[in-house]
Design a protein around this nucleic acid. Sequence first.
DNA 1: CGTCTATTTGAATGTACTCAAAAGCGGTGG
DNA 2: CCACCGCTTTTGAGTACATTCAAATAGACG
Lengths: 209, 209
Amino acid sequence: MFDAILQNVTRYVSLTEGEKEKFTSALQPKKLLKHQYLVQAGEACRYECYVNKGCLRQYYVDDGGHEHIIMFAIEDWWTSDMHSLVTGNKALTNIDALENSELLLIERTMFERLLSEIPKLERHFRMMLQRAFISHQRRLIENMSLPADQRYSRFLIQYPQLEPRIPQKLIASFLGITPESLSRIRRSSEVWGRPAAFLIIIDQFNFLS
Amino acid sequence: MFDAILQNVTRYVSLTEGEKEKFTSALQPKKLLKHQYLVQAGEACRYECYVNKGCLRQYYVDDGGHEHIIMFAIEDWWTSDMHSLVTGNKALTNIDALENSELLLIERTMFERLLSEIPKLERHFRMMLQRAFISHQRRLIENMSLPADQRYSRFLIQYPQLEPRIPQKLIASFLGITPESLSRIRRSSEVWGRPAAFLIIIDQFNFLS
DNA sequence: CGTCTATTTGAATGTACTCAAAAGCGGTGG
DNA sequence: CCACCGCTTTTGAGTACATTCAAATAGACG
């Protein structure tokens, strides 16, 4: 149950058995069926969430009722409504399960206490946040500088593990385009093949992982 | 010289005089004239940078030669090419000065050493990164869900201190639109006034500050 | 004052969107 | 097994927002 998450948090730092024990005892296992919510907009998000198995999405619903996917989270990724978690304010986003999922939750105050008591854990999460920050910057740059078809190509190369398990309409939402547009993009790329992958710089930063 | 940065890093944690001394002795003051570069795409970025005075911008130049502004950094904000800093790879972005500026730099390995030796500093930067992460998520959401004119309104409300000191074409670039489009947006909003500000949730997270 | 850059304005273009409808696909129950 | 239902994906036609290109105006700075 805790093997994967322990490997995750010891990616950059090493923990003693005692520290591992302390850490895992703070974890709350939770199962989520497909379509169930982890966080709903309007309520506070009180947990950091590690995905042991399954797939979640975080999305924002705008005034026009349109959904915008902020991120996905599959095995070994973390997710939460960070804004709500940090401020205690009501969440602006929803997080729900795209598949039946198994999660490990850490309650907010417990998380802070753990990080205070185990500086190496604080270090791990600082480094993870750096990577998430980089990942978001890359996505921002791509959204601003690339047309929709190239954003899709980049997505396929950056997240090959996501494409087969996520419905197209959600990928479209993640890319910031309509399902109709993505369908048209896919049709034309069938004819022309994939854009030159070698031109593209792939980095190893997948949001919160 | 160090008052501001010490106040910055003790926003969430307290440091002893010895720790403050240790921290400030790692800082390298640097002045940058308007138009000078702190980082250029193609070279490695080796410093975390705190802005004591002045204004910088970080931007990406795409294959078509178009500039895309990723972030600004004014007094009390931090900047760097995080991707390059973390990986040691060549920077993909440029950072230059929009005004004559006074910076405090921390060399990369020194930064890591400081954070290891002073866990409270690590804590500070972890929390800062959380806020930057939140800020980037908000910007992503806005870029996806709002039309250009509303993104501009949001910018004015979110960063009132930036608008007067930054040329319009750079604000346009930050918003992901052309200078011509921003000009037209401003012309129509003169007639119609500002969109309803009370509908908008402002947060206190300004990238890296 | 003159030069350089920023901003504004106009006209034509294009990318992606909306709305609408058809086709495809998967699951359920008769 | 097949018929039906709901949802996803595809396709089409018309539209809208923002872009490009070009040119004029305004501002900043030496």
